Simulated assay, not measured.
Amino acid sequence: MQDRLGAVQVQVQAALDHAIDGLPSGALADAMRYAVSGGKRLRAFLVMESARLHGIADRAALPVAAAVEALHAYSLVHDDLPAMDDDDLRRGQPTVHVKWSEATAILAGDALQTLAFGLLTDPAIGAAEARLRLVASLAWAAGAQGMVWGQSLDIEAETAPTPLDLAAIMRLQGGKTGALIRFAATAGPLIAGDDPAALDRYAAEMGLAFQIADDILDVTGDEVRTGKRVGKDDAAGKATFVSLLGLDGARIAAQNHVTAAEAALAQYGATAGNLRALARFVIERDT
């Protein structure tokens, strides 16, 4: 898996750089380029692997992989703003609003979001019908039923009279983190016109495992390794998987979700080995 992940990281970075190189030079383009630099590219990897499982060539899947990473980068830029999570460190570097300004960060996020949808119109992806399916799916995943909705629930929870329970946290994270992961994992069948149900189940389980691992890292992680501030959730008194389940309980829950994610891939047999490895990786990582 690691070799494939490394190759995807290089391909996607080149695609994003190429897209931004075509924009007018200046602070906006510089901030966009900065925002999309680095990262694990797990969502892009999901796109590329789900496409491979459905007979889609890398050259067709690459614009979709770049699109999901541009969308993800926009969400991080906006989440880091003082009005949201108020973070000053991302991927080991100052956040965009710290390096430039809040206004530039807002505009860079806006531009990355529109860039994502523009990338989904690339004829290299295939038929217009396939591209339309992708646009509709990403719009759902990114908006008021998915990622943005989840962020809204997160903000509301900060002033709620009682902490969230486990069901509410799963609902929140299913939008904030899980929706974009589900888009990425189902991109392959969406391009091919195949049934995305199995990969959607895989992604829902893997997304929960990913978020539980993030909550664990917020307690146990090292700031240098993670590239972002740790201990913020506890300091803010936020309910998390760890605060509700304890560290051991959270680790068990994460492993259970990974097991369920792997089971969802049964129909793909050995060809889904990289996706099984990814599910295990998300709970073993230290960044």
Rank of each mutant, 00 (worst) to 15 (best):
K238S: 10
A167C: 05
L164N: 06
R201N: 11
P161L: 01
P196K: 05
M147L: 14
A168I: 03
T226I: 08
Q151E: 03
D154P: 10
E156H: 13
L172R: 15
L172G: 03
G221E: 00
A192G: 10
A236Q: 14
P163L: 04
D214S: 04
R229Y: 09
L208F: 00
L134E: 10
A136I: 12
E223Q: 15
L166S: 08
L199E: 06
L172D: 12
V135W: 07
A213Q: 15
F183L: 04
D154W: 02
E223P: 14
V135K: 13
I155H: 14
F183R: 05
L190I: 10
A204W: 03
A167H: 07
I212M: 10
T162N: 12
A142C: 11
I155S: 14
D215H: 00
A197E: 03
D218V: 06
L138F: 12
A136E: 14
P196M: 05
G175L: 04
G178Q: 02
R201I: 08
G188A: 04
D234V: 01
D214K: 07
W149L: 11
I155F: 14
T186Q: 12
K238E: 09
I191T: 11
A197M: 03
L190A: 11
D200P: 03
L190D: 12
I216T: 12
G178N: 01
V230L: 14
L199G: 08
W140D: 08
A157L: 00
A204I: 03
A197R: 07
Q145G: 04
A204Y: 04
A198Q: 12
E223R: 15
I216R: 10
Q211W: 00
I191W: 14
D194T: 15
R225E: 12
A157C: 01
E158N: 02
A187E: 09
D195F: 15
R201L: 13
P163F: 01
S137M: 06
Q211N: 04
G178E: 02
V148E: 10
K238A: 10
V224F: 00
P189G: 11
I169M: 12
E156R: 13
D234N: 03
P163V: 01
Y202K: 11
P189N: 12
L199V: 09
D200F: 07
A179P: 05
Q173W: 02
E158W: 00
Q145E: 12
E158V: 02
G143E: 09
P196D: 07
A136C: 13
L134W: 05
A144S: 15
M170G: 11
A209C: 10
A142I: 07
Y202M: 07
R225C: 10
M170C: 10
D214E: 12
I181V: 06
T220H: 08
V148D: 07
K228M: 00
I191F: 14
G188K: 11
A185Q: 08
Y202T: 13
G178Y: 02
L153S: 06
G143F: 09
D165Y: 09
